[in-house]
Nucleic acid binder design. Sequence first.
DNA 1: CGATTGTTTGAAGTTTCTCAAGGTGCGTGG
DNA 2: CCACGCACCTTGAGAAACTTCAAACAATCG
Lengths: 238, 238
Amino acid sequence: MSLSCDVCALSDICLPAGLNEAEFSLLEKNVVTGQKYTKGSQLYAVGETFGGLYAVKSGSFKSVVSSKDGDAQIVSFHMPGELIGFDGYDSTHTSSVIALENSMVCKVPGSHLDFLCSNIKSVSKHIHSMIANDVRAHNSVLVLIAQRPAEERVICFLKNISDRNKKRGFSAIDFTLSMTRGDIANFLGMAPETISRLLSQLQDDQIVEFDRRNVHIMDLEELALRSCGQDEGSAIRA
Amino acid sequence: MSLSCDVCALSDICLPAGLNEAEFSLLEKNVVTGQKYTKGSQLYAVGETFGGLYAVKSGSFKSVVSSKDGDAQIVSFHMPGELIGFDGYDSTHTSSVIALENSMVCKVPGSHLDFLCSNIKSVSKHIHSMIANDVRAHNSVLVLIAQRPAEERVICFLKNISDRNKKRGFSAIDFTLSMTRGDIANFLGMAPETISRLLSQLQDDQIVEFDRRNVHIMDLEELALRSCGQDEGSAIRA
DNA sequence: CGATTGTTTGAAGTTTCTCAAGGTGCGTGG
DNA sequence: CCACGCACCTTGAGAAACTTCAAACAATCG
C-alpha cells in the first residue's frame, strides 16, 4: 500500500513548507509510505545500523534505551507527524523503538537523505529544525525530571500530550493514552504507584477524569496553570 | 590570534578523519579559530539566532536552560574537543552557554556549515555523528537521573569526567573540576548538600580524594564497578 | 581585608519508593 | 460465548532516600 504525501493529513507537520512541484515529486519518490507495525513490534533495535528516518503516520511509539543493568528507560514517546531516528544518525542506533499500538510510518532511507538534503534546501532546513526540536524536547524532559516534584511531572506530561493532540488537529481535552501507567512512570522517573496516586488525586480535584486510558480534561486552564515552567513551544517531544 | 587546525592538539577529536589537503584547507578557511571567552561570559544566550557551531579548544562550558519559574537547569558540560550549538540548529538557541573558566573556542559560522557539508562529504558525516552523540549523551543523562540513586549519579559523573579526560589524552585519575558543587548538583538533579555528603563518603571509602575541586581517583576500578549501567561509549557527553 | 560565594555537616521533615494485597479488564483458548 | 489467566491498575502502610533549614567554615575576588 502506498499513500502519497499530498493527501496525507500530516503533511503540514511532516513536510517542509514551500516546496515546488518538482521538489515535491522528488521528495515523494524517495519516501517509502505506509509501512505497518503491529502493537509491540520494533521499528528498530539497539545496535541496528542506521537505515533512515521515520515519520509517524498513525499510532504511536516509544523509544527505549537500556543501561547495562538491564533495566530500560523510555526516553520519548512519538506521535503522528513526529520524526524518529536521529539517535542513530549516520551510525548505529542506541535506542529501540516499539509500537504502542498498531501504527504506520513513512520512511526516508538514509542513503536518500543526503541526496535530498543536498538538492532541496528546505528539506535540509527542515531536518535541522527537527534536530533542534529533538534537543529542545530532551532538555525539557530533563528539567522536568531533574527539578520538578512528581505531581508537576504528571501534569506536564498530560498537558504535553494534550498540546500535541491539538497541534495535529485533534481534541486537546479528550483523548486516549496509548501507553501504560508503567510506561508513563518509567518515562517520568518514578514508581507506577506514584503515577496512579497522582492521577487519582487529579480526578478528586476535578481537573481530569480518567476511565482507564481514556482521558477527559475538565479544567484545562488549571492544568496549564499547574504545569508552569513548561510552555507549549518547549514540548516534551515537539 | 589565529591558530591553524593542523597544529591543534584536538584535531583528532574535532575534525573528521581522512580529509585531503584541498578539503582541509577549505575547512580551515571557514573556521574562526581561537576566540576567547572569560570565566562567566556567555558563548550565546537563550533566544539568540543560530550563528554556527562551536568547538571547545580549551577550558569548559555549561549549557543552561531555564523554565518559566526562573530556575535554571544545567543540561550539559562541554570539554575540549566537543561541539556546542545544536540546540539552535537553523533557528534560535533555547539554551545559554556559559564559560566555567577562561576558555577558547573555534567557530564554524552557520552560513558556511551548509557549504562545507555539501562540499565535503566527511564533514557532513562528522556532523551527523556529533548529532547522534548528542542524542546519546542526552539519553544517558536521562537514564541516570530518572532511575539511579544519588550515589550512583555522582559516581557516574566522576567516571564520565575521567573518561573524557582520558579521551583527550589527559590523566583519568588526576584532574580539576571546573564547575561548582552546586553546578554538579543541579546537573544531576539533587541538592548541593547531597553532593557534598556523597563526595565525603567516597573519600571515607578511600575511592576518591578531594581537595576542593581537585580530584584524585584512588580506586578507578571500584569507581567503574559502582558506576555500572554506564559504559564509556555512552558517555554523559561524548 | 571584607564581602560574597561556595562548601561542609547536622538534624528534622517530606516526598517518594517498596512491599503487599486486592481489583479490573482484556485476550485466548476451550 | 464463557472462563480462565495474565497484565495492568489502584490503594494502604511502613521504610528509605533525599531535601530543607540552619549554622559554621573556607576560599576567592574585588
